[in-house]
Design a binder for these strands. Structure first.
Lengths: 228, 228
DNA sequence: TTTAAAATATGATATTTGTCAGCTTTTCAA
DNA sequence: TTGAAAAGCTGACAAATATCATATTTTAAA
């Protein structure tokens, strides 16, 4: 079993504030899992009872609305932690997490991580900071969802995806999402998302490589997304 | 000057975890202010450099979208604290706060509150919990904004307002909002909000007392908002 | 009190977005 | 390899919502 001290998650998450001793304890009690593409890390209404460290892969975090439509709230890349929110409020999860590709994750049980939260103020303050940043992002997303058109939200999402996941050497945005996933990120019907993507393609602003997307005219996309 | 130990904000916020000594220090360095209806507590882009304790009154927390439209993210009632988010991430505020009626607030400067956050783990853990709850609410709002119709959002908002602010003895929801404010809460044009309110009135689901609102048929409103 | 400005209200119309139907392409398991 | 299922695509139309115009009512300042 690998040591946490070497792990990519440690470098990029609040876990970097854990001491060597604390890491050894975490290493000892963690369990490692492979999650197949399409499988749940956890589901809405489930007691998670710990946090997941994502060593490899990407997952979508989503929630079902009362209308029966799915909304993707966030995409979580490897190097990050997921599940702290429910842990801290001591509630069942209000969100689901589903693997977008095959993932390698470690699960750290609640008791262990709570002990560290209580004892290590540098760690807990970093968790607090991360949560504050998430809250800021969430507020921004609320405003976008409420005030921007579907077209603007699509343009902005494409820019965000490129920023977050980068591009391959062929310029393709380096995350594979179905058209339905894209629709569920921007909060629209799948057909509408497809139609608007076709429109962007027709205007030579984007291009398809297979089903994945290349941004050809970033400036124009910014103009659509932000109005400048 | 009043002591913080007696204050309503202490009862209802994370400040209840401060010790007597800590409260005395806070009492000594706080400044008290009257904010008139319509005035800013703080504005987007401003360095807040502290937190506000709301002793009396209500404020709206809003953000301007790139389209130039205003979105109200939250309403903060007396007894609560506002401004921690920016303080913790050490950034200018991404939101504005505007008084909906005359307010009495206390301002606690950054250094003082940061000291308590570092030293008092019960306090900082409660702040973390509060932030986690805010994040959950924000996630729910994202889904509503993305997936529900304006009509559903209006119905849900009316129910939320009644829940949060209660009603007077005449059954009127005990918060005065302009039609524009209501539109900015649900994320629609003022005319659309007015039209849908008229429709609810025509169907005898709500009633106007002056410009304020009485919910006459809560069940029907729930059916619109949640589909049951 | 008077009066201008702001808020509320409603109609007409344009635009955006959702829904349904049907078709083609891709994927994946037998 | 092949054939069924899933995903992607497009058109036609319906529904929701925004925008603009204008009228009425309320508010607040002179």
């Amino acid at each position: 079993m690998n040591k946490c001290s070497q792990c990519i998650v440690r470098q990029f998450s609040s876990l970097k504030h854990l001491t060597k001793e604390e890491l050894l304890r975490v290493s000892a009690c963690k369990t490692s899992k492979i999650i197949k593409k399409g499988d749940f890390l956890f589901e809405e209404g489930e007691h998670i009872n710990g946090v997941f460290c994502i060593k490899d892969g990407v997952c979508k975090v989503s929630k079902m609305s009362e209308n029966g439509k799915n909304q993707i709230i966030n995409l979580i890349n490897h190097g990050n932690i997921i599940g702290e929110r429910s842990l801290i409020s001591n509630e069942v999860s209000n969100l689901s997490a589903i693997a977008l590709n095959d993932m390698t994750v470690c699960f750290i049980p609640k008791d262990e991580i709570m002990k560290d939260l209580e004892m290590n103020t540098a760690f807990s303050f970093d968790v607090l900071k991360t949560m504050a940043n998430s809250l800021k992002s969430a507020d921004n997303l609320i405003v976008d969802m409420a005030q921007k058109s579907v077209k603007q939200r699509l343009a902005e999402s494409l820019l965000n995806l490129k920023e977050k996941f980068g591009t391959t050497n062929q310029g393709v945005i380096d995350i594979h999402l179905s058209r339905e996933d894209i629709a569920n990120i921007i909060g629209t019907a799948t057909e509408s998302a497809i139609r608007l993507l076709s429109e962007l393609k027709k205007k030579d602003i984007i291009e398809f490589k297979g089903k994945d997307i290349v941004i050809k005219n970033e400036q124009e996309l910014e103009k659509i997304a932000y109005g400048f």
